[in-house]
Nucleic acid binder design. Sequence first.
RNA 1: GGCCCGGUGGUCAAGCGGUUAAGACACGGCCCUUUCAAGGCUGUAACACGGGUUCGAGUCCCGUCCGGGUCACCA
Length: 489
Amino acid sequence: MKEIRVRFAPSPTGPLHIGGARSALFNYLYAKASGGKLIIRIEDTDIERSSRQSEENILESLKWLGITWDEGPDIAGPYAPYRQTERLSAYGEFTKRLLAENKAYYCYCSPEELEAQRQDFMAKGELPRYNGKCAELTEMEKARLEAEGRIPVIRFRVPLNQDIVIHDLVRGDVIFESNGIGDFVIIKSDGLPTYNYAVVLDDALMKISHVIRAEEHLSNTPRQIVLYEALGLELPLFAHISLILGKDRSKMSKRHGATSVVQYKELGYLPQAVVNFLALLGWSPAGEEELFSMEELIANFSLDRVAKNPAVFDMDKLSWINGMYIRKSPVSEIAHMALPFLQQAGYVSGSPTEDEQKWVELVAAALQEHLATVGDIVEHMGILAGEDVTIESDEAKAILHEETFPLVIRAFQEKIAQLPELTPESIKPLLKSLTKELKLGGKQVYMPVRIALTGKMHGPELFYVIPVLGKELIAKRITKTTQEAGVQF
RNA sequence: GGCCCGGUGGUCAAGCGGUUAAGACACGGCCCUUUCAAGGCUGUAACACGGGUUCGAGUCCCGUCCGGGUCACCA
């Protein structure tokens, strides 16, 4: 059986886009599910916009997501190199052959002339495409044009009157007429191949068996197919997955919010959550489970459960999934992820002490259940840090005026004074014993203590809040809130 | 505009000629709970429209409408 080889071929012109990430993921899942290989190929023939920095960023984002590859620019492999600009020498003989067989020709039209042509077509209401002006130049004409200092491109001569059919794995057969495609450029005037040419050569040369990519490439595919045929190369199987749309149903872009993978990382999303969410965008599992680890995705993935219709990026669902993963993660991991956010907000020093690290761990434990993203942690810190407390409402204030309040708060203070160290484990029984000894309902103990300590009626479990605050802050905040409420005890 | 792809609740989606048209997110209610969150139960809500084909159409065909993609010396 033929080896399954799929590829993700980003152009390094910016950070990894969320849509690109999903293409990469589907390729990865397909490769893993079928025992095949994933190849990363960098399509950097647009030298103006490509950068090595973007390439590194893209590879880093893929790694962050947990997508690994078998061959690529950083690990080489049997079909190296994996950067298009380093593969140029391999293209020459193919181009020569096309030229020799008259399947391609030099074109001397300048950009200005092409633009004028296009305007002409548009004005006449015809489809704008290359008019074939240079298709049949004689040697003499070529020499003259070259003497003018014109640098030619090479165009592919698209065969006329042909139906080109794509047997698409997700869409079924898609048919294009070759007459709808004008002779297109395969070699630019700078000598570099265009995308449509390089992609065909590389996919063929790298023995790619399945091309899984976004739907925006569907209308390019007939160009590529005619090239495969002209060169006598074996066609891969194609699978075009639909696009990811923004809330207004247009293609995802900056104005829809975060579009790159790094942005999600920076906002405090977990890679497993992003992967899980992306997988569900356009693919659906056979069962009703929605939460999948990478291993489970691999075990369940198949191309025939990939949807044809575009999907709107639903931030709410991403947040929900992320929250699920945050709750499932060990506290230490959340603490680790939370640290930079807390540092940036000034709650923790640049190089945290051991005590600070323990404190962050407590904070993470307290807030873990409440977060949609790790970055959200900062919004909750008012309750857990600082001397600054204000009572949020008259309703809260009234609770401090209940007649049992002095009793409760005094007993509470006595109890924590006896503890050498405040820990969730020690506070939990302490609070319980308080209700018992005072013969009060839970609410009559927990609520006044909560308000005295935080000024709020809601928040994380008290047995977390108390150790996070520590004895000193507790004393200060009690003084402050009781003063504000005007209660003696 | 030409060509191509798509159209099931607000969103993601299951469905492959016969179902009370799943499930999830979001939203509302109830329960649990010291609060909130989580969790459990529950409710509102959909086959774009019009013609066919068929005993029977969300499912097949055609048209209309709507959305998207693409028409580069970008990828």
